[in-house]
Design a protein around this nucleic acid. Sequence first.
DNA 1: GAAAAGAGTTGCATATTGTCCAACGAATAG
DNA 2: CTATTCGTTGGACAATATGCAACTCTTTTC
Lengths: 283, 283
Amino acid sequence: MNARKANQLAGKGDEIEHQATERLPAEDWSATDSPRKAIQSVEIGVRVLRALMDCPRDGAHLREVAEKSGLSRSQAHRYLLAFVNTGVVEQNVQNGRYALGAFSVRIGMAALARVEPVRIAGDNLASVLEDLQTTGLLAVWGNYGPSVIRWIDGGLPLMTSLHVGSVLPLQASSTGILFLTHCSRALTRPVIVQERASGLEVSDDELERQVVQARELGYATTQGTVVPGLSALSVPVLDSGNRLVATMSVLSRVQDKHFYSKPKIEKIRSAAMAASRAIGWQG
Amino acid sequence: MNARKANQLAGKGDEIEHQATERLPAEDWSATDSPRKAIQSVEIGVRVLRALMDCPRDGAHLREVAEKSGLSRSQAHRYLLAFVNTGVVEQNVQNGRYALGAFSVRIGMAALARVEPVRIAGDNLASVLEDLQTTGLLAVWGNYGPSVIRWIDGGLPLMTSLHVGSVLPLQASSTGILFLTHCSRALTRPVIVQERASGLEVSDDELERQVVQARELGYATTQGTVVPGLSALSVPVLDSGNRLVATMSVLSRVQDKHFYSKPKIEKIRSAAMAASRAIGWQG
DNA sequence: GAAAAGAGTTGCATATTGTCCAACGAATAG
DNA sequence: CTATTCGTTGGACAATATGCAACTCTTTTC
């Protein structure tokens, strides 16, 4: 048992990144490691998921998963099979690669819904959208930049490529500008590098200008840079530490030139501020 | 083994809320779980997560989790313990309730990054077309109506005026019918007006009939109305908000009267549903 | 062009590991 | 106070995960 267990736990020399799992709700929810008797297979299974998490979008080969999680290939294969059976993981039939699947998204969404700030921001956004009779979205910081986590349809007939899961560009969306405004360079820089490698380039000067403006006004706007014909106004939702928790965006057609009137902007801003205050912001 | 497994699967007399375990092959769920050997504990673990997913924001008691997942309390407790150890689940020390934890959010974020509707729909369409040895197309809503964004040649030699960028008629194509079925009037009406001004007129009654039929069947068909001699069957790809993201169309010659047999239609439909699920649809 | 290497997948004997039962302490109710 | 319910734990048993090796298929190498 000793040799076997040692092999399992230590992996093949590679130490597994056991990143301190950040805790969003500042309540008394503990996730402390305890040496109590549990289901070992489940803990190993989570190791497999962890291995899949920091993988390129197009998935990982069995080989990589096995290495990252410190399992033999046959073992890793069986764990992946179990996850595939349950929809947590999907396997690309073309190239055989494994990646997190649709059910993982649902788990994440269910977990997010439990996070107070997101819930509150979503509710406030919904009521503003109903008031303004238009459509909008909620975004948080995801693995590859600002990610749409809620899409609220409010009367404005729109067909866009945007949807829950879309990653918005940092440099070319009002949402992105807000994240640039409120988040550390260390967080945003890699994404910008990535975007520029993909051909989306906005000069640092121009970005700086927009960031300053967003900071002054308390909101950011874009016209048609993400989806042609669609303009957006985004406002930040901050927590007690002035950290950006989420962004609320209100959409309209670019031809509705005067959609974002002073009173409407005020409504949107105060909705975001109400949400911010509700989660402890004191600015 | 029999008695034991039966007990596991059936629960303790209470029937488990077996919410359509989304397995694509649509096997009957009471029979053999997985034809291939996997890790049973992991699959059970996912059952526990599923139980946690649809519970109130403040978490669920061990009791509920046990019932919903069809496990004994001691069993459920051990699974939850394993998830708590890994940060997937958190336990409120005050009231002892369990809920999805911060790590679940991270899993979801990682999975979200992989959601790319058009690519996924294109891949699924391609494999169906290869299977059926024919040609098809992918369409999304464009500025002037349903627009072809991918044309996939699959053996059927077709000479048509259709190509990437073509706008399909709302009233006279199976693709158009689907957009009429799933999109708001406000979005489609202008295009219909435009079409009628150009001489293409289908009565509202007839359209309504087709829309109802498409909604019932889950697909739409046309014979030769877009391109003479060419018939098409189109299926919708939906996202998490039940919005129509794209349509997949499979083409054939009208003289191949029995091309769209039941099993083929089923294949096409399930490809679209697989794509839908992969981008978060939960219907 | 054949052989070798590497990838993904599967069968099988073995014992590690999950399961069931029962029990404990702690709340809560009656 | 007793009775019940709940979360949690211990221990014996056997079901289940493991490691090894084999197999298929593709890719690489010579």
